[in-house]
């Protein structure tokens, strides 16, 4: 969806921000590095990392951005568990955009790829 949003807004981005590259996260996305680090800290469950990420985001972007970002992070902590606990496959493995993104991010390395019957 990041790629789809970037295409819609004609913005150049670097998807490696998804894989934790802070400089890549900042390409085309305002406060990208700090937002990525907040999401990472939430998902890692590391309180010290989270405290640092929260402080950096508030100082740079403000409290309202932090609250919206916290909502998104919390939402996806839920979504990933729904998807994996119910074993759902990708809706459409054939779209070119989806294939490109999965390849670029090497998502087939994840164990849950088998729910979508991926072999490469």
């Amino acid at each position: 969806m990041l790629r789809a949003s970037a295409l819609t807004t004609n913005t150049e981005i670097d998807l490696q921000g998804i894989n934790g590259d802070a400089s890549a996260a900042g390409v085309g996305v305002e406060f990208g590095a700090e937002l990525m680090q907040l999401g990472e800290a939430v998902a890692m469950g590391d309180e010290a990392q989270l405290s640092t990420a929260r402080q950096q985001l508030v100082e740079l972007a403000g409290a309202a951005v932090l609250v919206d970002a916290a909502g998104v992070a919390a939402n996806f902590q839920r979504m990933v568990r729904i998807a994996d606990a119910m074993g759902i496959p990708i809706d459409d493995m054939t779209t070119e955009l989806g294939q490109q993104v999965r390849q670029e991010l090497d998502l087939a390395r994840f164990e849950t790829a088998q729910n979508s019957a991926v072999n490469n």
Binding site: L2, I13, M36, G39, E40, A69, V80, D84, S116
Partner: peptide, 28 residues
């Protein structure tokens, strides 16, 4: 693009969403 009642835009949302999903190793 962006929902009116949010201060972050969709790309910002999806960056957070993507990082959370990647840490959780969610293929979907």
């Amino acid at each position: 693009v962006k929902q009116d009642d949010r201060v972050i835009n969709r790309m910002q949302m999806e960056l957070v969403a993507g990082r959370v999903s990647a840490i959780n190793e969610c293929f979907y």
